[in-house]
Write a protein that binds this DNA or RNA. Structure first.
Length: 350
DNA sequence: AACCCTATCAACCGCCATCTG
DNA sequence: CCAGATGGCGGTTGATAGGGT
């Protein structure tokens, strides 16, 4: 294996980066000036180059990448400088082993966001999108596959899994679901109004907004790889904030306040759905134990629910989130379309 | 020792959204 | 409103390290 801290300092001849992918997009012959590498150095950065770049940015600040190399005296293209800074030289970039709690969070976030590496990285301090992407491709996707889970959809590779039955008919044949929607959590269900927020084994209300409850589908997806680990929310890791932070107040709504915090809180609510499921599981266990006379009724932990879990109350999006129509009972939209609209809004916001 | 295979990850690419004039 | 410039993103590549034969 290549040691992370040494490879980039390699002074070996050109090589390093790959030939570049198509990105799956329409190929055009146009190239930006930055992409023309005439006379520019490529491949691994040398310690000298790193020093020059770091010194320059520390003095002049980030930005204006296109012209930076010239100003800094580097024979690199702006993109290369930016990438090097963002992924390696920038302060606070954490390297080394991904901790189990980070891995857990990556899994949760990927289930919710799909391959939105920058969004995922934005919620894991010190980790870059490139690093997370690499870790996903080299570790986590294989890990999921070995567990019989499709890393792209976070659904069982075996389509006959009983956990799927509830939504299978609605989802499995969807081309949108299979191809157009790499986002992972395709079991999110937006029920119609007449549906009460009834909790079943695989349909958990996560949040509500106005008329609609937001359901989380199969709870067997993304089993916590380390059940002994607390949910980051409650672990003091500071990786995610409490959902209570996301309680939308009228003030915010009035000023059309739709910020990262709003989305962040919403995301947290989704992330913590796993914790929610875990809590539910604990509750079931507790009830069982109570029936067996093992433990006294009640729990000092306010997060431990007693019987029927209730969705987080009072959660709201900022005004910029047009979630109500998505959740609307009268909507003729099927689930996939609703979910797609939600993701579209995610895209628009971020 | 030499070769092969696999895993890793830095760096590259094209595309797209946003910014700016 | 438009066009060009710029920044940022996700997909992909390939050099390298290390283990196996």
């Amino acid at each position: 294996m290549r040691h992370p801290s040494t490879s980039s300092s390699s002074t070996t001849a050109a090589g390093g980066g790959g030939g570049g992918g198509s990105g799956g997009k329409t190929n055009t012959s146009t190239t930006t000036p930055c992409c023309s590498k005439v006379g520019l150095k490529r491949g691994p950065w040398t310690p000298e180059e790193d020093e020059v770049l770091a010194n320059y940015i520390n003095k002049e600040g980030e930005g204006r990448w296109r012209t930076m190399p010239k100003r800094a005296g580097l024979l690199r293209c702006g993109k290369s400088c930016r990438l090097r800074w963002m992924n390696y030289l920038r302060p606070n970039v954490k390297r080394g082993q991904i901790a189990p709690d980070e891995e857990d969070l990556i899994l949760r976030l990927h289930r919710l966001l799909g391959n939105r590496w920058s969004l995922i990285a934005g919620r894991i301090p010190g980790r870059t999108d490139n690093e997370i992407k690499n870790y996903w491709n080299t570790h986590l996707s294989k890990k999921l596959i070995s567990q019989g889970i499709d890393p792209r959809t976070h659904k069982p590779l075996n389509p006959d899994s009983p956990a799927e039955d509830d939504n299978k008919n609605k989802l499995s044949s969807s081309k949108f679901n299979q191809n157009l929607m790499p986002y992972a959590d395709q079991n999110i269900v937006t029920p119609s109004l007449e549906l009460e927020p009834v909790v079943s084994s695989n349909r958990i209300p996560v949040m509500n907004k106005g008329n609609g409850y937001y359901y989380q589908g199969s709870n067997q997806m993304l089993a916590n790889p380390n059940p002994n680990l607390p949910n980051p929310e409650f672990s003091g890791l500071g990786l995610v904030r409490s959902i209570n932070n996301g309680v939308g107040n009228e003030e915010d709504d009035e000023v059309n306040y739709c910020t990262d915090d709003v989305f962040s809180s919403f995301l947290n609510s989704l992330i913590n759905e796993d914790g929610f499921n875990s809590i539910q599981h604990q509750a079931v266990q507790q009830q069982q134990q109570q029936l067996n006379g093992i433990v006294p009724c009640g729990s000092s932990d306010p997060l431990i629910i007693s019987s029927t879990p209730t969705p987080p109350q009072n959660f709201t999006f900022g005004a910029g989130w047009d979630i109500a129509p998505i959740m609307s009972s009268g909507s003729a939209l099927n689930h996939n379309e609703q979910l797609k609209r939600f993701h579209d809004q995610v895209d628009k916001k971020f």
